[in-house]
Design a protein around this nucleic acid. Structure first.
Lengths: 331, 331
DNA sequence: CTGTTAGCGCATTCAG
DNA sequence: CTGAATGCGCTAACAG
């Protein structure tokens, strides 16, 4: 199929005008007579001309593309973010290069490398699992970066805008919920070791419940939660509450509880985080902390596009507050 | 940040060689002395050179990018496909341009237009909601296309490879499951009107259960399923089984059943489709038809890359058979 | 209102 | 083993 697509020159030859005139028509610039313009427009349609994004990019030095890096697009947390980002980006004529890191820091580096080579105009980096030093080394190579769910810790790492969830606050909210109901023997199923969100949530929990909250890492999946919950429930039968890193882990905890014969919530309470769709649909429904994910994506995209327009200006950090959602798993 | 990145010429000047020698080093071609090569390689590292994907694409006429078009990345069916595609693509040095159509045919056209302009090497088009004529009009503009979940109906539309789920067969399997258990008053909650998968599943159902299966369209979401199930359960209290277009719709049906006081499965059975994670975690767990989504994505990507290598060759259609998963909602 | 000249950064081709 | 010339398709900056 597709005999090589026509170029500006082809149209120009056919129309008997110069290449520039056609270019002006394509780009809706003025400086072309209106009958001429008409004629050329028809010709463009007829010959099925499409501008070459590549050639255009080579001269403008912009690709109209932004990179979206996520740990795992199959994790229900990220599609919603992607949706928000895509929506805003598309509205402004940008498209999205999606990259999965598979929760693997070295692959995260590879992916950033690829995006650099593809010359994206900017990057939205979600839940980066990279140590700060690496990050500081690579991010400056991009014209614009927005960090999602990862604080630009040091002052000098403020080479990036950021959108964050106030996870410390979320941890506190959950902690208070539990404390009021008399739970003092609590374990936190923390998700990936490198997760900054996990650490912040734990800090919030401990801020309210005191230092002896148990901290356990696990994969951020149902299976991961199930495994670690099974273990800790065996080792510490005195625990009365499990706080999970996210809703998937919490569902795993529910399953583990069922296995070892603990009734939820009568006998053990469980909390999640994120409020993904699943959270409200399992039995018992999960008490959790809602994170507005699509909004997170939209805000991130807005910050990025904003910076692409005006690359000066202070770097901004937007912090979204999560919302406690009380359901049956921890009433 | 980022003083304009160095080009081949910059490196060449610094190294006191010609641009071509540097190019050869970068592209690992031979024809360069080994001490020379060493020297240049260090220089490349030092100066932080990165090849310009754009410039390279302009001359090679390949972008190393493939477009992935989905109706809604937030619908749990598609992230798994995206994951499979991304994985295979990344392995082969390709990246993924993700586009959401928001279930909107006109936006689907816009998105394809954008991909054409971005000059992707190929497109994977999932669950296209476009009529055949439109499709036949646009697809030939791409160098390679793989259709997912959409049969290239006409012979002459065979300008594309395809990966399909045997939805007719899936419908039959569900139909048989119901028939054996004596259900004859059945409604099919069909999802979007333009969905070809929906039609195929319905055809399979009817092939087994006969012509009076009720057919109702709805949005492919929990809310959509809940609404349409509520209505039909009110209008037709004699129904004993609801077959849903997908698991989300089925969950909506479960909720509607609870609202109107029908016990599942004692009083009404419900089936889903896809076997997303949710399906096994709701109560009652859904009887459904499992579709290997990540595999679907991998196969699609393989077909596409294959065609990019050898653009000749017959067009292929891979058909995956779904698997009946029996759970509590229709035991 | 229109055309000419230049060059974006690179790979392909052909000479040395 | 190395380099010089050419052009990918387009836009920006000038000329007329």
């Amino acid at each position: 199929m597709s005999n090589p697509r026509p170029t500006l020159a082809d149209i120009a030859r056919e129309a008997g005008v110069s290449l520039m005139t056609v270019s002006r028509v394509v780009n809706q610039k003025d400086g072309v007579g209106s009958e001429q313009r008409q004629r050329i427009e028809t010709l463009i349609k007829q010959m099925g001309y499409r501008p070459s994004g590549i050639a255009r990019s080579l001269v403008t030095q912009r690709t109209g593309t932004i990179g979206l890096v996520v740990p795992d697009i199959a994790n229900p947390f990220f599609p919603d973010i992607a949706r928000g980002v895509e929506q805003i980006a598309f509205q402004h004529g940008y498209s999205l290069l999606l990259c999965n890191t598979e929760e693997n820091p070295s692959r995260e580096l590879d992916v950033l490398d690829l995006l650099l080579e593809k010359q994206v105009d900017g990057v939205i980096l979600c839940s980066s699992r990279l140590p700060s030093e690496k990050l500081k080394e690579i991010l400056p190579a991009f014209a614009a970066v927005v960090l999602v769910n990862r604080m630009p810790e040091d002052e000098d790492m403020a080479g990036a805008d950021a959108v964050l969830v106030d996870d410390f606050r979320g941890g506190q909210m959950l902690g208070q919920h539990l404390q009021i109901r008399g739970h003092s023997q609590v374990a936190f199923l923390a998700g990936p070791e490198q997760s900054f969100s996990g650490k912040a949530r734990f800090a919030g929990l401990r801020n309210v419940l005191g230092a002896d909250v148990v901290f356990l890492t696990c994969e951020p999946t149902v299976g991961g939660g199930q495994r670690v919950a099974r273990e800790i429930l065996g080792a510490r039968p005195d625990l009365t509450a499990l706080c999970a890193f996210n809703d998937l882990v919490a569902v795993g905890a529910l399953q583990a509880a069922a296995e070892v014969g603990r009734q939820v919530p009568a006998d053990l309470v469980v909390t999640g985080y994120d409020d993904i769709q699943l959270a409200g649909l399992v039995t018992p429904a999960l008490t959790t902390c809602r994170v507005q994910r699509e909004n997170l994506g939209c805000r991130a995209a807005e910050l990025l596009l904003d910076r692409l327009d005006r690359s000066d200006g202070q770097f901004k950090t937007i912090k979204l507050t999560p919302q406690l959602i009380q359901r049956a798993s921890a009433p």
